[in-house]
Design a protein around this nucleic acid. Structure first.
Lengths: 108, 108
DNA sequence: TAGTCTCATCGTCGTTCGACGATCATCGAT
DNA sequence: ATCGATGATCGTCGAACGACGATGAGACTA
């Protein structure tokens, strides 16, 4: 059962258009996106509001360690964020990172 | 001297919003973008209207063969296109590919 | 305290990437 | 017909990636 508990993170609505990142940063963001499984994870986290690691693993037909790696890559790219919740970790979209990505691509 | 001859390619202005690509395709596009040199090439081709391979090489501080590889990757990702012009090749942005990319990212 | 559950991290293995120099094919000019 | 210039392709090498199983660290539960 998909627990769609909200991922409570302070985040201003950002009225600003948001500056586009430099090439180095944009390349890192794009690279993090450059794998189908990671795109699927992003869509999953968007669709549901947040997911435990185990829920993501359940959707991906990949080993737990592999999924955890993909989550790490997305996290380090600032595209998602996770908070520890007892023995589990709850991941959700990092809206700011996504916004930076969108701004960078839109500015191409 | 940078020859900014126009890259004449038929291309409808596309009034449609343009459908977002599937994850597989979007991942390939993102992967192609995931390198600073390739972003730089895209910007170069946008700024000037088109470039010969040699002009791109002159801007990138990389070996000719390496640049040619980057051009190939962008070309195969449909983000740029090249036309042979005598002994040289003239590259320009593939507006359609860029549009697909932007649509895919914007839809995230 | 022992046991279990969850998830991150580590070590490994094969594949892909990114860079290079060398080579090759093609076109223009001599 | 030869030569020079241009640029794609090939072969190579080290680094990074993507997958996996195994292990380890925390946090609840009995």
């Amino acid at each position: 059962m998909s627990q769609t508990t909200e991922c409570r993170v302070l985040q201003q609505p950002s009225a600003e258009p948001l500056a586009a990142p430099d090439d180095e940063t944009l390349a890192l963001l794009a690279k993090a996106l450059g794998h189908p499984s990671r795109l699927k994870i992003l869509r999953l986290l968007t669709e549901r509001n947040a997911c435990l690691t185990g829920e993501v693993v359940g959707e991906l037909d990949l080993a737990q360690s592999t999924v955890s790696e993909h989550l790490r890559i997305l996290r380090e790219a600032n595209l998602i964020q996770g908070e520890i919740e007892g023995p589990r970790t709850r991941y959700c979209i990092n809206a700011n990172g996504i916004a930076v990505l969108k701004a960078g691509i839109a500015a191409l």
